[in-house]
Amino acid sequence: MNFVRFAVRRLLEMAATLLGASFVVFGAMYLAPGNPASFLLGGRSASPAALAAIDRQYHLNDPFIEQYARWLGNILHGDFGRSIEYRTDVSHLLSSRLPTTLLLVGMALVVVVLLGLALGWAGAVRGGATDSAILVGTTFAIGTPAFVAAILLQGFLAVELGWFPSSGSGSGDGIAAMLWHLTLPAIALALYLVGMLARVTRSAMLEQLTSEHVAVARSRGIPERHVISRHVFRNALGAVLTTAGLIVSSLLVCTVLVETAFSVGGVGQLLELSSTTKDFPVVQAISLIIVALFMTVNLIIDLLLPVVDPRITLGTRATG
């Protein structure tokens, strides 16, 4: 009951935030410098009549609020408008690219979670040389921007060794080809976040390791591996889950860079291209989708948090 009310409230909050975000996304493109009509004409001079026709087709002369309302109404009906650059429906453009991006982000997320948790766990539990090595490694990982990692990975694993393709998404050649093409982009995308999650996991587990209830569990003869899994790691999960929101948002943003670096034909690359060509219906649609994805992930995390930490919905969070 308590949980249901919590979920409903979060859903309503999400709807409100999404509405606000749509306004910002639309407004930003409206305020941005440059005129899509002039871009569309490719520098050629056009008759005032032709310009007026374009303005009319894209409703560029309507008042802002009217344009916004029309755009939002269409989106609610599943119509994201037409791309100026590609002269096709935005939804058509996205339907071929969104799966690629989701697969890439999903692969990176798996790498981040598996490797980040494993390294953090090992560092906290083993200590000593293992911990020092992990600290040094994660420092490098955190200090390496995704585009630098992309260049290094392309240089060594793709060009020098030829183990992986250096660009493209392999879409159309089946799932195996896609996984193979997206391995390097996923690693480049994951690297920084592996370092970050490992650090968060490590410090949360170290904090638990020195806590009284862990000492008590040991004093009760609980085998050490159970002490680690049931008390240390279990109690560190809250911090890990909170970080997961940050991880997903970072993945969604960095995928623009990585897709561009590896020429992966995904939504991120499309966003980058469309921004430079002022293809505003595409930019708006992708921005809104990224915001919606990010908020959905946060909603899921919010709903999972009370499961991981029962003190949250019960409203009895301890003060010490």
Binding site: H213, V216, H231, N235, P310, G320
Partner: peptide, 12 residues
Amino acid sequence: FQDPRAAINPLR
């Protein structure tokens, strides 16, 4: 132990 609040894992 002295402080049962600290001695028992709050999440289990």
